[in-house]
Design a protein around this nucleic acid. Structure first.
Lengths: 233, 233
DNA sequence: AAGTGGTCTAGACCACTGA
DNA sequence: CAGTGGTCTAGACCACTTG
């Protein structure tokens, strides 16, 4: 009569986590090796492994071969954000989505944009500015640069039909993505487009994507006043 | 002569990812069941499972029992951030860390703070304001509320010795953490403390933590001008 | 060189959930 | 209720890293 699957890895994880929280294992201290824990907690080693993987992903412990498992000495808050396509984000709030193309042209990117894209020798990019609206109120202003070499098809996309955001996400998968959040003051142009005052504080999400080493696009997504980014539940 | 461990789950993951990227499986479409993929790719089903788990964590696919595995129809950008203790963040930039206590008192939290903490009946909290400095220049301003019921020991902490940030992180583990990012304009107080101009745009990280359902603390961490939050590499 | 975590396999059973 | 993913086990070998 062998019992199987009596303890789930989540239970194991929580039990280990609890012994860390109650101070049994302090930050920087070493936990028993997997095999010993498996014996002690009455499960297979792979179950311990699964639990430890989760704790490690959460930034609670650090694991090293031969070095063992330790409680992470410098605690970090690790958070995950989902950034959906803007249309979906608006619709999920129960608002009606619309977008307006402001301008589209071929422009040589300024130094800071070229640097962000890791270009060695700059060349003209598609520069697209567009406004996303929620219930006809400005929601987010998008200032985008798209690489014509990596994305030649982009020239033929009807940006009135579909936002650049949505077209790229569906048609040009990336292998690398850099994200950066910061605050800016509204310039008079930006203020006009977002229907606010010049000098207002605005939240910016800057996203740059590559396919391999080839740049795809970089975008400054500027939220309307009051915009907040919240951890996914 | 059985060969073992010929293909790693990362290889499998990348191969599956590639067939999604090249359009073999379009968004919303169903992938073969694990067992078939295992046969086709010449590995055990658990290896497929491990690869799929990773793709699922990345937000690329969705898996359901009986429903099978599908390419996620609405692509999202999923990003993970590590928010270390401010002292470590400063030191990692190669700067010298210092912090200053600005004020500490018992104050009844205003409605918006009480709401953020999910208090039903408000009562006085420790309100602590402090400045973190990097090479003696303002780096981040911290405006914090600490629950005296959940953290009674806090009354006896010497906040000149150790920042509230650091003491809490080391001594009061949380089970739930809400994060929220946005932009504000500097008030004259904030501007003075961060050595900038009133009205300047500042990046804010608001973090609220609980132990079970008991509130621990909520903090507005206001970055000095130029502060950016970047995805962990 | 040896110890510890990481991964893979093969097989079994469980738990959801869609037809 | 049957199909699919989720998990658990036991055992083996691999790969990293530290003493």
């Amino acid at each position: 009569m062998t019992r199987t699957a009596r303890v789930s890895w989540k239970e194991i994880r929580d039990r280990i986590h609890a012994t860390i929280l109650d101070g049994t294992y302090a930050p920087g201290q070493k936990l028993p090796r997997d095999e010993d824990l498996a014996d002690r907690l009455g499960c297979a080693r792979s179950t311990i492994q699964r639990a430890m993987q989760d704790l490690s992903d959460s930034g609670i412990i650090e694991r090293r071969r031969k070095g063992g498992t330790r409680v992470r000495p410098d605690p970090v808050t690790r958070a995950t954000f989902d950034i959906p396509v803007t249309r979906i984000e608006v619709e999920d709030r129960g608002a009606r989505y619309r977008h307006q193309l402001i301008s589209s042209a071929m422009v040589l990117p300024p130094d800071e944009v070229a640097a962000e894209l890791e270009l060695t020798a700059p060349y003209p990019f598609h520069r697209v500015r567009a406004l996303h609206l929620a219930d006809d109120k400005p929601y987010m202003l998008e200032d985008r640069w798209v690489c014509p070499r990596t994305v030649p098809e982009f020239a033929h996309v009807d940006l009135h039909q579909q936002s650049a955001n949505e077209w790229l996400v569906r048609n040009k998968p990336y292998t690398r993505c850099d994200l950066r959040f910061y605050a800016i003051r509204a310039t008079s142009d930006v203020a006009r487009e977002l229907a606010t005052e010049p000098g207002d504080a605005l939240f910016v999400m800057q996203r740059t994507t590559w396919s391999g080493t080839a740049p795809i696009t970089t975008v400054q997504a500027i939220g309307a006043p009051g915009y907040q980014l919240v951890t996914r539940s």
